[in-house]
Amino acid sequence: MRARVFVTPRKGILDPQGRAVEGALTSLGISGVANLRVGRYVTLEIDAPSHAAAEATVKRICEQLLANPNIEDFRFEVDAG
């Protein structure tokens, strides 16, 4: 099964990278953009007996390695079948 993981800076944590990118949009002449945050997108394939088992494993992977709970939030999607 394929999984997609999105890791983003935790709400309330300053994201200087996001802010710099947002500033660059102003230089591009694009206005009306706010709260731009830069995160990480991870794709993986996982061999699991069921969708629920795959989700449980991906959750573990996120909690233990892909995201640092001090500074990052994560969410993920696991394809059915």
């Binding site: 944590i13 300053l14 200087p16 990278q17 710099a20 640092n68 001090n70 500074i71």
Partner: peptide
Amino acid sequence: LCEAHLLPGALMRNRSL
């Protein structure tokens, strides 16, 4: 040490980038 949970907190990109 922070990543290994032997110390609290985390170190992020410098504010100035």
